[in-house]
Structures are given as C-alpha cells and as structure tokens.
Design a protein around this nucleic acid. Sequence first.
DNA 1: CGTGTAAGGAATTCTGACACG
DNA 2: CGTGTAAGGAATTCTGACACG
Lengths: 153, 153
Amino acid sequence: MKKIIEDDFMQRVKSILKTSHFSLGIGDIADATGVSQRQLRYWEKKGYIKPSTGTEEGKHRKYSYFTLAKVSLIQSFIETGFTLNAAVTKADEHREVANALKQLVINRLSSVETLDNGFKFNLGPIEGLPGKDLIATIHTGQDTTFTLENQPS
Amino acid sequence: MKKIIEDDFMQRVKSILKTSHFSLGIGDIADATGVSQRQLRYWEKKGYIKPSTGTEEGKHRKYSYFTLAKVSLIQSFIETGFTLNAAVTKADEHREVANALKQLVINRLSSVETLDNGFKFNLGPIEGLPGKDLIATIHTGQDTTFTLENQPS
DNA sequence: CGTGTAAGGAATTCTGACACG
DNA sequence: CGTGTAAGGAATTCTGACACG
C-alpha cells in the first residue's frame, strides 16, 4: 500500500523549488497580510521593503515571497504595539529565516514515500550515526514524527 | 556570538506560516512557470487546475501556491514528452507533497538560533532516542547537516 | 486536442495631491 | 510620522472568436 516516489519525480520537485521565482502583486500582499496598498507604497518609499520588479517604467509592483514574510512580520510587531520603525528593525534581525527553511528542504530531501494517510520523507544521514537515515513521517492532520531507519544497502 | 531567537518570534513565524493564505495572479503563474495565460485558462476549462478566487464576477483569477507547484509539475512532464492529459495524471499522484512539506515545518520547528553564517533549527525529539533533540544546522551556501543534542534540562 | 492571436471592455494598480495630526 | 481617500491615466486580465490542425 506504500509507494516509493521515483527519483525522477524528486528531481522535478527540487528543480521547481530551486528555480521557481514567483512574485505577487500589491493586492495579493495586501490581502494576505492585512497591510494596505497605501502602507506598502509608503514602506517602500522609506526603504523598508522593495519590490522585485521595479516600477520605473510605470508597471505594476511585484513582490517576492520573502517580502511577503517580512511584511507579515512587521505587521505582527505593529499589532503588538511597536512603531513602524521599531517593527522593521525587529523583523530585519531575522529576515533570512524563511530563506534558510527553504534551503533546509532543498538540501536534505532525498526521497518520498506515500502512505495511506500521509508521507514519509527521507532526510538522509545524521552526524555520528553511520548507517542510519533520518525519516520524517507525516500523517494528515496529525503530528510529524522523526525516526531512524537503516540505510538501504 | 550566537543568539537564541525568543519564543515570541517563533510564535509569529508559525502563525504566519499557518494563516498566510496568499494568492498569485495569472501573469505571475505564467512568468514563474513558462506556461502561457492561454494555456492556464484552457487547463482550467478542462478541470485540471482551478483558481482559488472564482472568476464568476468577472474578476481576475487568483491561484494558490499549490496550484503554482502543480502547474510547474505538469509543465515539467510536458517538456519531457508527455501529453497534457498524461502530465496532469502524473502530477496529480503527488499533488499533496508540497502541502506535507509545509506541515513538516509547522509541526516540528520549536526554536531557532542564529550563527555567524547560518541557522540552527531545533526539530525536537526522535522516536527511540529519549533525551535527545534533532538539530538541523544550515550554513549559508553550504549543505545542511543533522546532529543530535541533549535536551535542555 | 491544445495553443496563438487580435479586439474591446472590465478590474487592478499607478502617481501626485489633499487631509489629519 | 503614518495612513486614508478621490481622480484620472496606464498596465493587466477578462471573454468569445478565429485560426491551425
């Protein structure tokens, strides 16, 4: 009942994760974060955020996913009572977290199996435990567990 | 030189990951995947993909990130020589992979430390290894390694 | 089947300004 | 400082059709 997803598929997924540089419009950012378009343009003018596609030629602004994350963080701090400037400072301290998470997945994901109600991800070896692979098991709607399995010989 | 990011921050990041339902326009999907707008509308008409925001009221289409991933996968199979219909079938077999990856991060990420040139993620305990926490270490531009550390007492 | 194109209308975003404070 | 609003123009997307095959 389980099915090992072929390496070919994993290559495609990794390639997509690495190369897919998608962008969002200002309305998409506003809807997702609750920050108004007026605020986003003002924050840009102050240098707090910047669109990936310049608006030099009078075109619509485009934002990266990391800008979305940053806007969400800033908004989160503002709601807590920080001033805009203080919220930006706090958000900037950790702006690379989302990027690092993405890198984690790209670097280590080596294979996937489908289960009846979830997935098994093979994340490769752990330092100091030769011959073992780290396995993350996800069951839909439940928690994720990590286990160790002997590497296929 | 290292800095433990406070729980407060992790709560914000988790909250953002869970609640941030962002969407992309048809032009964003087309630019990110290389699939034309004409193709996207045709694929929608055939029932292969569907926008998150209906176009009933004559508004612009909005797509989820998972639809972007699916479109990328379909395109990847088409480029390999599959027909559109066959490519959709292959993509559908694994459409929940991206969702599961997101769940993995949300479920297990418990704390983050910043290093000089990367991050340390604490992913919590492993089955069968009491007292230990799984640590993922990411160095910018390098590989990710997993190690075990004693849980803080 | 699957995609390209030109056409006219509608939805979205653009800038600069006025407002409040 | 930081954000809301109304205004007119520009960029983007809309649908239905014609085309090729």
